[in-house]
Amino acid sequence: MTDIAVACKQVSKRYGAKTALDHLDITIPRGHVVGVLGPNGAGKSTFFRMLAGLVQPDAGVVEVLGQRPGWRANENIAYLPDRARWYPDHTTEQAFQWAERFLPAFDRAVAERLASLMQLDLTLQAGGMSRGQEARLMLILCVARRVPLIILDEPFSGIDVVSREQIVDALMEHICDGDKTVLISTHEIHEVEALFDSVIFLGDGRLQLAGEADALRRQYGSMREIVKRLHLGGEQQ
C-alpha cells in the first residue's frame, strides 16, 4: 500500500476559455488532515471532483490511493460534493439506511452517535431541514464511513456559526485519529484551521503554497494572512 493518498502530476483542466487547473503538481501523504484553501475560482472544487472521478483531466496524471480516479476508487473515498443537497423525501434515518445500502464501510453506530452529537433528529425529513441541519446530515454520511480518504468540499457553506462550531467539534473528535486522510476546502478558515495538519493554497488553478500548518502559522501569523497575501501579492511556493 502506497504512503501517498493523492498524487497529481502536471494536471490541467479547462472549461472552454477558463483554466480551472493549470499544470498542478500536488502530493498529499496519507494520514494528514489537509486544508485546501484559496479564493473562489482557484480550482479547489475541480481538484476535488477530479479526485472523485467526476471530471477528467485534459492533461497530466491523477492518482488517488494508488489508483486512477473513478467508480472503483470511490469505494475508498467519502466525498461531500460542493453545493450538494440531500434527497428531500428522506428522513435522517432513511438517509442512514440509504448509506448502509450504497456506501461501502458506512458505520451506522458512528452515524447515530454523530447525529446525537450534532443534535440531528433521526425522524426529520431533509426537505424540512435548515441548511445547517442538512449540511450536518451530509457530513455525517461522509465522516461515518471507515474509508482511508475523506474529501469535504465547502462543508460549511451557508451554515450559521453555531452549526459550524458543532460540526467542527464533531470533526475534531472523529477524523483526527491519524489513519485517515482528510481534505477540506473552506472559506471559513478561522473556525476550521485548528483541524489542519497541513495546508495547500491554490490560486488560478496552480499550487501557490503548501506546507505544515504550524510552520506556516509561525512564518506568516495566520492562515487568513496567507490567503490575503497570496491573493494580493501572488507569492509562489
Partner: peptide, 10 residues
C-alpha cells in the same frame, strides 16, 4: 442537487 452523490457511487 443530489447528482454529486449519485455520480460518485462506487
Amino acid at each position: 442537487g443530489t447528482a454529486g452523490w449519485w455520480l460518485t457511487l462506487p
